[in-house]
Amino acid sequence: MERKIRILIAKPGLDGHDRGAKVIARALRDAGMEVIYTGLRQTPEQIVAAAVQEDVDCIGLSILSGAHMTLFPRVLDLMKEQGLDDVILFGGGIIPDEDVPKLKEVGVAEIFTPGASTQAVIEYLRQHVRSAA
């Protein structure tokens, strides 16, 4: 039997804007995926530790505070340290268009900005997450 896609949805930064993170978590769950939501104000260290512990296929970061250029690279570094090479890092939030290519260059798989549908996220994950044995 095929393993369900396992996703960690995480909310770094000091702000409390968790509407998007919670809506996405719910939509992915309704699409049959296993979702772990970290809650608010998680440090990159906490996020990557949770990803290791939960053995996830991908990590989704929701960032609305403007700190995305600091937080994504730091999470990627920690993922490398922990050997999470086949885990996909994607994200969403208030991220200006000109920052998206820069984030992809350093290894963020995809960025979903406001207006993206939950269906688009679901389809992206179904296509890109390795089919686990």
């Binding site: 702000d15 403007g66 600091t70």
Partner: peptide, 10 residues
């Protein structure tokens, strides 16, 4: 340390 990257931003 928790304020890093957020001072004066919002």
């Amino acid at each position: 340390p928790l304020s890093e990257g957020e001072v004066g931003k919002c």
